[in-house]
Structures are given as structure tokens and as C-alpha cells.
């Protein structure tokens, strides 16, 4: 019922079979014939299998591999991480839109001869709690101009959405923009520190702390893909001189990299 994701990342595991519960969730999402919202399907599945999910961590799949990514029929990717944690990332390609440009970009579009442009791309990553409720989603939108010799990134918009009421997640150090990685690779990115807990006069409790980067990447030939990087930092309690960490430094930071579907363009020459 699933196909392995096409990935440019070495650390994505595509040949490991999902566990029974993971396969169940994949099947539920793929067989959504009534066109119910994916979030509704996920929440219902997690509710129905609540007991099994919490006791499934000792199975062979979870203990052997760090994470497993599978492509859903909708085109989104679901990645299962240990501790019953999963996320969904997606790449939406809008072939019909004329890329919105700002003043600076408009000048570049006119001056560049023999340049081609990718469609408008939107990359997103959604995080879920143990009940299958979507907590938040991070988006980044952009496109690229390329001419077989160089690539130029165009950032359109980046944003995040709190998907659940009573959401305690806060965002700091939010950044968005473009980056030229090398002469033939460029990125459109958004990144920020997603954390929840509380702080009062320098004293703080951080329950969960993620550094999330969602980005689109393209080379000079117009081969583009959507990627993400998640870094989970150690939970901390800081009261005056007391600085207590919940968990060992060997466990943290937990880093997870992944990608959505990679698209190969035809050669321009």
C-alpha cells in the first residue's frame, strides 16, 4: 500500500518494513476514500490504537532503526521516529501560478537570458502529539531560476501555523530567506526554535525544545527537492544557579533530517 520515498538523504531508511501499527496508519491514510482530512484520520487511528502504540516500542522495527519514511498515496511523506513520534512532510508544486516577484526579483527576471524557472514550491513539516493531533506546521515557499550554469533562489513566503487550541508552543529566532550553498546549489529556507515551557526572570523550564529548518533546494539543472532538519534539544530546568537537565547528554541532541519527493528536471541542453 505504500511506495518507498525517493530521497537524496543517505540517512533515510526506505527498505525497512513498517511495524503493524505504522502500516495500519499508512493504510488508513491511503484508503481515505471519503476524502476526510488527514488530521482527522490520524487522530482517529491514534485513538483506536492508543494502548498498542504505547507498548509497541520494543518491537524489532523501533529498536533497530532510528526512523522510517514512507510515501503516502497523497504524495506526502510520513516519518516514524522512536517513542511513537511521527511527522508528515510535504512538497506542493503549483504549476499554474506565475511566480510572484518583488521589485528586486522582477529586475533579475528581465535581465537573465536563457533562464528557466521552477514552479512555485511549498514545503511543509507537521508535528503531531501522541493522540495524533497536529500541533504545528512550518511552511516555506519559493522558486528557483536556473540556466545550467548557476541557480538563483527566490523566497516568496515562510510561515508557521498552530493547529491545535491551547497550544503552548512558542517560536523564537525565526529566520527566513535564501542561501547560496555553492555555485550550483541554492536554498530557500525558514528556520526557528520551537519550544514550550515557561520563563520568569531568567528562571525557566523547557519541556521540549526543537530547532526546525524547512527548506527547498535546487541545483543549476533545476533539480529541486524539499528538505527538513529537526534537532531536539535536551529539556532543562533553570532556577537561579540550579541548572538541571532531564535526560543524558548522550541522548541529546536528537537530530533528524529528511526530504520530500525529489524532482529531476529534463536537461536544458
Amino acid at each position: 500500500m505504500f511506495v518507498s520515498t525517493v530521497s537524496a538523504q543517505d540517512n533515510l531508511t526506505t527498505n525497512v518494513k513498517p511495524s503493524e501499527l505504522e502500516q495500519g496508519l499508512i493504510d488508513a491514510l491511503n484508503s481515505d476514500t471519503k476524502n476526510l482530512a488527514a488530521d482527522y484520520v490520524i487522530a482517529n487511528y491514534c485513538k483506536a490504537t492508543e494502548d498498542k502504540i504505547s507498548t509497541s516500542e520494543n518491537n524489532n522495527v523501533s529498536s533497530k532503526s532510528n526512523s522510517r519514511t514512507y510515501q503516502l498515496e497523497s504524495g506526502s511523506n510520513i516519518t516514524f521516529i522512536n517513542h511513537g513520534n511521527f511527522l508528515i512532510n510535504d512538497l506542493k508544486v503549483d504549476n499554474n501560478t506565475i511566480q510572484p516577484v518583488n521589485k528586486e526579483n522582477e529586475m533579475n527576471l528581465q535581465s537573465e537570458d536563457n533562464s528557466f524557472y521552477t514552479p512555485s514550491l511549498i514545503s511543509s513539516v507537521s508535528e503531531y502529539n501522541s493522540f495524533g493531533w497536529k500541533l504545528f506546521t512550518v511552511y516555506t515557499q519559493g522558486y528557483f531560476g536556473y540556466d545550467n550554469k548557476s541557480v538563483k533562489p527566490y523566497h516568496v513566503n515562510s510561515w508557521y501555523v498552530h493547529n491545535m487550541p491551547f497550544n503552548l508552543w512558542q517560536i523564537s529566532n525565526w529566520e527566513e530567506g535564501t542561501d547560496i550553498i555553492s555555485s550550483n546549489t541554492a536554498e530557500v529556507y525558514s528556520q526557528g526554535n520551537f519550544h514550550y515551557g515557561f520563563e520568569y526572570k531568567g528562571n525557566s523550564l523547557t519541556v521540549q525544545n526543537y530547532y526546525i529548518k524547512v527548506y527547498l533546494s535546487c541545483d543549476q539543472n533545476g533539480n529541486y527537492g524539499a528538505y527538513y532538519s529537526l534537532t531536539e534539544l535536551i529539556p532543562k530546568l533553570k532556577v537561579g544557579s540550579l541548572n538541571l537537565s532531564f535526560g543524558s547528554s548522550t541522548e541529546y541532541p536528537r537530530i533528524k533530517n529528511g526530504s520530500a519527493t525529489l524532482t529531476i528536471q529534463d536537461d536544458l541542453s
Binding site: N85, N129, S130, L135, G197, L205, Q208, F246
Partner: peptide, 20 residues
Amino acid sequence: NFINVIGQPDLPLFVAIIIG
């Protein structure tokens, strides 16, 4: 706090949630 945790909380997270 519990519904705001990403994924299944492990022991360190559970302690942090209780203290919080």
C-alpha cells in the same frame, strides 16, 4: 502539558511535564 508534547513522552519528558 501532555497534549502539547510531540510524540510519546519518555521518562525525562514525563518528569519535565510533572514539574511543569
